[in-house]
Amino acid sequence: MSSKRKTFDVGRDSENGQFITVKEAESRPKETTVERVPKRGHGDTK
């Protein structure tokens, strides 16, 4: 099996929905979330 991840982490501001860096999202946990987004070509990976 492949050891590479099919998703990557991305930060999102909960107030306006804009993408931000993961580092910034981890520093403001009440106002942001860190989500996993599938890489191109991998579709919906649960």
Rank of each mutant, 00 (worst) to 15 (best):
E31Q: 14
D44T: 14
G43S: 08
V22N: 00
E31S: 15
G41K: 03
S3R: 08
F8A: 07
K23G: 05
P38C: 08
V34H: 03
S3Y: 10
R5I: 04
T21Q: 09
D9S: 11
R5V: 01
E35F: 04
M1L: 10
R36E: 06
K46E: 11
T45M: 09
E24I: 07
A25N: 02
R36D: 04
E26M: 11
E15F: 11
S2C: 06
G11D: 00
E26W: 03
K30H: 09
D9P: 02
K4H: 11
F8L: 08
N16A: 07
Q18W: 12
S2W: 01
F19S: 15
D9Q: 09
G43E: 05
P29R: 03
V34E: 02
D9H: 07
T21G: 06
G17N: 09
F19M: 14
E35W: 02
P29I: 04
S3D: 13
K46S: 13
T32K: 00
G43L: 03
D13C: 14
T33C: 11
H42Q: 14
A25C: 03
D13N: 07
V22F: 02
G41C: 04
K6T: 09
T33W: 06
G11I: 00
S27L: 04
M1I: 10
E15Y: 06
N16I: 06
K30W: 06
R12M: 10
R40A: 15
E24N: 05
E15R: 10
R40C: 04
E15D: 13
K6S: 09
E35L: 12
F19C: 04
V22S: 01
V10Q: 06
V37W: 06
P38Y: 05
